[in-house]
Design a protein around this nucleic acid. Structure first.
Length: 564
RNA sequence: CGCAGGGUAGAGCAGUCCGGUAGCUUGCCAGGCUCAUAACCUGGAGGUCGCGUGGUUCAAAUCCCGCCCCUGCAACCA
């Protein structure tokens, strides 16, 4: 049994998660985790909220809360929304946990011992009125190149020039608006990435042709340009205190302890049942584990360079990523999701409007794998209505109704297969092999297109065999057709389960089966005769409902799609 | 400016690595069927593959060169 470690990039606790977050790293990882479990692998799917950093500190201040309770509040919201989407984390933890602190210190000390940490004095913007140091992007002023008066300290949005906060004319704090800001010297710790460049380069080379091109090429690009020392501490209060004399008032930079959070959260998981769970089995026995990471495209450099360098620099035998799935962005009707304008679809709203499976299927079938993807309600409704309702839902409905009418609500006796059935077996064997191939390779769009083809094959079989005619002249063979079709419902349930867990459970409940579901491995000739004749089935209400045109117009207005 | 990804029927995508009659889904039109949820099945129309009427080649969506447009990154936002 293969041990499969899966992580989704940790969502930042302060952000209200929307469909873009869902499709970028959470949902594909969940589908993959469910698929591997159904195949029988030993899966550990880890995620959690990323909590440290300036944004949390400032956000808590704005809400007049202690930062710990602020993070707890938003962490709980994340948990609730992800439950609504049926994400099957083995553990959803927090980067602010004691366990993560322990691992972060352990890794830091190992890096320090290997002479990979150096002290540097840097100049930072300090705002006395805010009582804090300001990250570059929290300083606003007039761009010296184009005169734009809302340029930020890292880059001017108007002319795209990369800036230093000291370049700005009339600099002021984004937080308080105060122009009383000063430049202070402050000591920080840097990770000496250049010393790890060769080792990293050799490691990346072994991933050529294995990682997706985008991940490999981004990693190579950074290495080609030469790595720079990277600051790993910040002048903040919220975070893990830096365990070194003279750094008592500083904390680790969020990007240092956030990816380590994958490990820290795994330890949160194992600490709950220390006798049966061992985080070391997943992170310190690299040959026994296959590790897949999911992330948005903006996160690729951190997962291909910074985090692996952090682990390798310890000289210890940490597990590093085997396969990365980087996703592009989901846009809303050609624009951006906007929290402040409340434009776009946030997860709580999504679940209130439609069952999670509708969203899960659309998002995976249209995953932004090769380019950014636009969400529109028109497209969403078209896919739900056609694929889920017409192709899949109607298939189930017509089979159940026809069987019940002619044979009662039990599975009819299955006779010898004819050419029709043999052809069906052959078609499905091929399609299911393709489906597995795409799921194994994390090609989600192709996997979903194949899943749909499998559903269509069911309708084709019924159209070709015409059981409504056959029943009048050869009732035995009509029974065979419908028994085969009932077995198809079971198949559809089993193979749809990774992407649509709730609907799959309903499909299987119809023919009297329960969790856990196994992905079929036997030839269709055997599998499609698996249900014994005479087994009672439960006629059900339609599994899916169409989205009516009027509803569609309401949604467009409610979510301001038409304004975009 | 640099780097990366993308630009293929109305819409959404595959094909490009390794050149060989341009494919899929949806939408549209027509036919079939009438078990089923106005559904299902079959067929048809629709594209000078971003531009250079650029280069290589018997042959270019695919390889090479130049350019344009969209998106992201650019190490202190996370």
């Amino acid at each position: 049994m293969t041990k499969q470690l899966i992580t989704s990039a940790l969502p930042y606790v302060n952000g209200l998660p929307h469909l873009g977050h869902m499709v970028g790293c959470l949902l594909p990882a969940d589908v993959f985790a469910r698929y591997l479990r159904a195949k029988g692998d030993d899966v550990l799917y880890i995620c959690g909220t990323d909590e440290h950093g300036t944004v949390s500190e400032v956000g808590a201040a704005k809400e007049n809360m202690p930062v710990e309770s602020y993070c707890q509040k938003y962490h709980d919201q994340h948990v609730k929304m992800y439950q609504g989407f049926n994400l099957s984390f083995d553990y959803f933890g927090r980067t602010s946990s004691d366990q993560n602190k322990e691992i972060t210190y352990r890794i830091f000390k190992a890096l320090d011992k290997n002479d990979l940490i150096e002290e540097r004095t840097t100049k930072q913007v300090y705002s006395p009125d805010d009582g804090r140091y300001l990250p570059d992007s929290y300083v606003m002023g007039t761009c010296p190149y184009c005169g734009y008066d809302k340029a930020k300290g890292d880059q001017c949005e108007n002319c795209t020039k990369v800036l230093d906060p000291t370049d700005l004319i009339n600099p002021r704090s984004v937080l308080s608006g105060s122009s009383n800001i000063e430049i202070r010297e402050t000591k920080h710790l840097f990770l000496r990435l250049p010393k790890l460049e060769d080792e990293l380069n050799q490691w990346i080379e072994t991933k050529k042709g294995i990682w997706p091109d985008i991940a490999y090429s981004i990693a190579k690009k950074w290495l080609k340009e030469g790595l720079k020392e990277r600051g790993i501490t910040r002048d903040l209060k919220w975070g893990f205190a830096v365990p070194r004399p003279g750094f008592e008032n500083k904390v680790f930079y969020v990007w240092f302890d956030a990816p380590i959070g994958y490990i820290g959260i795994t330890k949160q998981w194992s600490d709950e049942k220390p006798t049966e769970r061992h985080w070391e089995d997943w992170w310190l026995k690299p040959d026994e584990v296959h590790y897949t990471e999911f992330m948005g495209k903006d996160n690729i450099p951190f997962h291909t360079i910074s985090f692996p360098a952090t682990l390798k620099g310890t000289g210890e035998n940490w597990k590093t990523v085997d396969f990365l799935k980087g996703m592009n962005y989901l846009n809303f009707a050609g624009g951006k999701f906007s929290k402040s304008a409340h434009r776009g679809i946030f997860l709580d709203d999504a679940i209130a409007e439609f069952p999670a499976d509708y969203w899960r299927y659309w998002l995976i079938a249209n995953a932004p794998e090769s380019d950014d993807t636009n969400f529109s309600f028109d497209h969403f409704a078209a896919v739900v209505n056609k694929d889920l309702n017409d192709v899949l839902g109607n298939f189930i409905n017509r089979v159940l109704k026809m069987t019940e009418k002619n044979f009662g609500a039990v599975v009819p006796p299955m006779g010898q297969p004819t050419t029709n059935e043999m052809e069906l077996y052959q078609t499905l064997d091929t399609l299911i092999t393709d489906y597995r191939k795409y799921m194994d390779g994390l090609e989600f769009r192709k996997a979903m297109a194949t899943l749909r083809e499998i559903w269509v094959a069911g309708n084709n079989y019924i159209a070709k065999t015409e059981p409504w005619k056959v029943v009048k002249e050869n009732k035995d063979y009509a029974g065979t057709i419908l028994a085969t079709a009932l077995n198809l419902i079971r198949l559809f349930g089993h193979i749809s389960a990774p992407v649509m867990p709730e609907s799959a459970e309903k499909m299987l409940a119809i023919i009297g089966e329960k969790l856990p579901f196994r992905f079929p491995t036997e030839p269709m000739k055997i599998y499609l005769t698996g249900i014994e004749s005479g087994r009672a089935f439960a006629p059900c209400e339609p599994l899916f409902a169409k989205i009516a045109p009027e509803r569609l117009e309401e949604l467009k207005i409610k979510y301001k799609e038409t304004e975009a």
